[in-house]
């Protein structure tokens, strides 16, 4: 049984546009720069497969559940290696909302559907804050970097 008290809800505010943020979350050329070198790969159509690839190896696989560019993205998340691979898929939801009257976008990441005593929950809890912090600094300080769109 999934337990709501095991859910993660992470929020960060980023000085960028929803479209750029969407691109940063969905294009491997971008994700590998801040997401532990991972290529997050999919055609982002509902029902399509989604994979996290690192060093040519699939680390996470899943399926696209919702893709409403540039507002809402949701996919299932299943670790392909180690103890956690025996657990049922969890669910990642990324919500992008422009903050009215500012040039800031609010990104909310929700990771849900963990089983009790999930083996992969502890690593997830360390992963997202690092990913989001890296994403924020890349988008904000990377204003003059090449933006591969």
């Amino acid at each position: 049984m999934a337990q709501a008290d095991q859910d993660f809800v992470y929020v960060t505010y980023i000085k960028t546009t929803p479209e750029k943020l969407w691109e940063a979350l969905t294009s491997p050329a971008f994700t590998r720069q801040y997401w532990f070198g991972i290529d997050v790969t999919s055609d982002w159509k509902v029902g399509s497969p989604m994979t996290y690839i690192s060093g040519g190896e699939t680390k996470v696989d899943g399926k696209v559940l919702i893709a409403d560019r540039p507002k809402l993205l949701s996919y299932t998340f299943h670790e392909t290696n180690g103890d956690a691979s025996a657990e049922p898929p969890t669910r990642v939801t990324l919500e992008i909302e422009p903050e009215a009257g500012t040039e800031t976008v609010r990104l909310t990441v929700t990771h849900t559907d963990f089983v009790a005593n999930s083996k992969h929950r502890p690593s997830i809890s360390q992963g997202w804050p690092a990913v989001l912090s890296g994403l924020k600094s890349l988008l904000e300080t990377g204003k003059t970097l090449q933006f591969e769109m």
């Binding site: 809800v9 960060t12 912090s133 924020k136 600094s137």
Partner: peptide, 27 residues
């Protein structure tokens, strides 16, 4: 300080730890 996130579920207000700003300090 954005250290907690609020999620409303009906009339109930749920609180979650949001460690992203702490990570920004580390970064």
């Amino acid at each position: 300080a954005q250290l907690i996130t609020i999620v409303w579920s009906g009339r109930e207000k749920h609180h979650y730890l949001n460690p992203v700003p702490i990570h920004a300090i580390q970064d």
